[in-house]
């Protein structure tokens, strides 16, 4: 593989494998399907995979309703075909693999190793990690040049911009392939360096932790914390509402990744966050986090 080969513009028939049918995996699948790309969605949990089809169908509707960025209803572009499997060896031909499993280094490393064994060398491997350095994950794949990070935000079918993380060993062809894929998905990439948490989560997760600590110490209520950020700073969502969208389990996992790699105590998950995760109050996806979402979902 050479840089020249990647520089030549070529039409690519994208077909995506998305690994992990959780909140982000189904969201990324929705984004791709809404842009007409076929997707094979993989998960080890049969029940999760069965629910994923309904979830994707609903999210496609939401993407259509909430703007042109997600679905393409009305533009004549059909929805891509969705396949599901529990067997990583049955991906078929794919132009890219997007890993979107739990934010645990050992889980991601295992899945990336298995995925890279299932596709030919030179196939783009994307990790949707929130915080784990790409060069660290690259240890688990035979062709580190194929791997890079694309940090989609939740919900990926509504947020147009992503962080694109280039690791020390990421090759030019992989970057070119990722930019081609993101263009097909209607996303804009901001290229950032490969440090724990990259840019968004290095800053955001610490802010969420501090915001939770403010509530824990009784300095302000969750409503008050977010009201200050939305009212005074004009943020669309405050830090705790944002944490509820991300999922508090993912927040704790990301903080742990950051703490372990930086030694910075500011990233140690505060007691209130840990309590909420232990109680199953994970945010929007469970109907309750720092705020209530009706209780039914």
């Amino acid at each position: 593989m050479t840089a020249q080969a990647a520089a030549a513009p070529r039409p690519v028939a994208h077909r995506l494998a998305v690994l992990g049918a959780g909140v982000m995996g189904t969201g990324i699948a929705t984004l791709a399907l809404g842009h007409g790309l076929p997707v094979v969605l993989v998960d080890v949990d049969r029940a999760v995979l069965a629910q994923a089809r309904d979830r994707v169908a609903g999210q496609l509707k939401l993407a259509t309703m909430l703007g042109p960025s997600g679905g393409r209803a009305g533009t004549g572009v059909g929805t891509g075909e969705l396949a599901t499997t529990m067997d990583l060896r049955r991906l078929g031909r794919v132009s890219a693999v997007v890993e979107s499993v739990t934010e645990r280094p050992e889980v991601k490393a295992g899945v990336l190793a298995a995925a890279s064994a299932a596709v030919p060398g030179g196939t783009l491997l994307v990790s949707n990690t929130s915080a784990i350095p790409i060069d660290e994950l690259a240890e688990s794949v035979p062709h580190p040049a194929d791997l890079l990070g694309v940090h989609f935000m939740n919900p990926p079918y509504l947020i147009r911009t992503v962080e694109l993380v280039r690791g020390r060993r990421t090759g030019d062809p992989a970057v070119a392939a990722a930019l081609s894929l993101l263009s097909a998905l209607g996303r804009e990439a901001v290229i950032v360096g490969d440090r724990p948490g990259f840019v968004v989560n290095r800053i955001l997760q610490r802010m969420v932790n501090e915001a939770a600590r403010v509530v824990e110490e009784g300095v302000a209520t969750a409503d008050a914390v977010d009201a200050v950020f939305t009212g005074c700073l004009g943020h669309r969502t405050g830090p705790l509402g944002t944490a509820d969208i991300i999922g508090l389990d993912n927040v704790v996992d990301s903080l742990t990744v950051l703490l372990d790699r930086t030694g910075d105590e500011g990233y140690r998950p505060c007691a209130l966050l840990l309590e909420k995760v232990a109680a199953g109050e994970l945010g929007r996806k469970t109907g309750r986090g720092f705020f209530e979402y009706g209780g039914a979902r």
Partner: peptide
């Protein structure tokens, strides 16, 4: 606006219509 999806699902399940 994210709640719109729940409204769609509710309409479809409660009234047997399909919104598309």
């Amino acid at each position: 606006s994210m709640f719109a999806l729940e409204l769609v699902v509710h309409l479809e399940t409660a009234f047997g219509v399909e919104v598309c």
